[in-house]
């Protein structure tokens, strides 16, 4: 019985990605004391980890810090209902995003010791983040703004939005586009704009070139499609689980 309860708690945390003590208590409906004993045992066994500080404590499965860094963005991008984001990573408006990107060159130079790469990376971040606002302003399906996180220690940049995605944007001007994968391929390879008659559509081509030429890794998701640029090679693939809007993970 004890093992069963412990397993149930473990499975619940695994499914949720992370869970607060209250969520676990509500789910299991046992006494909090008993649940905390199980949680302590699971921690001792190395099956779960405790994070945060009281009263904002939560439990999660052991992950390396890179996985941990992407976890919130993945939830924000994939879940049906948008989870609440920490202010640090949420740019509700373009002004907030702009203010945060202004200090990027300096941060990147400190990390990479490469001035020119830092300027290019900052431009890539600007293009991807601003794209989200350009195509969704006034038309966000649920929550406005973007997730934006830079983890300098892990050399990781994550941007995500819950917007209409590339397929919806491009379909309006090129109705022949059939699916997310085709839309994503066009966005990264052809000059096409979802905001005609304005002249635009270079952004993701620029992103691709910077990533390819500087040996950076990019995973870019929209709908059930992804673009992976790694070791100077670009691939367009279909995924199993669709993302809301777009999600970009850059490893530099």
């Amino acid at each position: 019985m004890k093992t069963e309860t412990r397993q149930k708690i473990f499975e619940f945390i695994k499914k949720q990605g992370q869970a607060t003590p209250k969520e676990i208590v509500d789910f299991i409906s046992f006494s909090p004391q008993m649940i905390f004993r199980h949680l302590a045992r699971l921690q001792n066994d190395g099956k779960i980890k405790k994070a945060g500080t009281s009263p904002f404590v939560f439990y999660h499965l052991p992950m390396d810090s890179k996985e941990w860094s992407t976890q919130e963005a993945i939830k924000w991008a994939y879940e049906q209902t948008a989870p609440e984001l920490k202010k640090d990573y949420y740019c509700q408006t373009r002004d907030i995003f702009q203010a945060r990107t202004d200090k990027l060159p300096k941060d990147f130079i400190n990390t990479t010791n490469n001035e020119q790469l830092s300027f290019l990376l900052s431009a890539v971040v600007g293009e991807i983040g601003n794209n989200s606002f350009d195509h969704n302003l006034g038309n966000w399906p649920d929550v406005p703004g973007i997730f934006f996180k830079v983890d300098l220690k892990e050399r990781l940049i994550i941007l995500a939005d819950r917007g209409q995605g590339i397929f919806q944007s491009l379909k309006k001007i090129r109705p022949s586009i059939q699916n997310h994968q085709e839309a994503l391929t066009i966005a990264f390879t052809e000059i096409i704009s979802g905001r005609t008659p304005e002249h635009r559509g270079n952004g993701l081509k620029f992103v691709r070139r910077v990533i390819e030429e500087n040996n950076i890794k990019l995973r870019f998701y929209t709908g059930d499609a992804k673009c992976v640029i790694e070791s100077k090679e670009t691939k367009f693939l279909k995924t199993d689980k669709p993302v809301n809007g777009t999600l970009a993970i850059i490893e530099f």
Partner: peptide, 14 residues
């Protein structure tokens, strides 16, 4: 100028 994006350049320079 440290960072120039194609979007900014397109809008201003073009």
């Amino acid at each position: 100028v440290q960072v120039l994006t194609p979007s900014w350049a397109d809008e201003f320079i073009s």
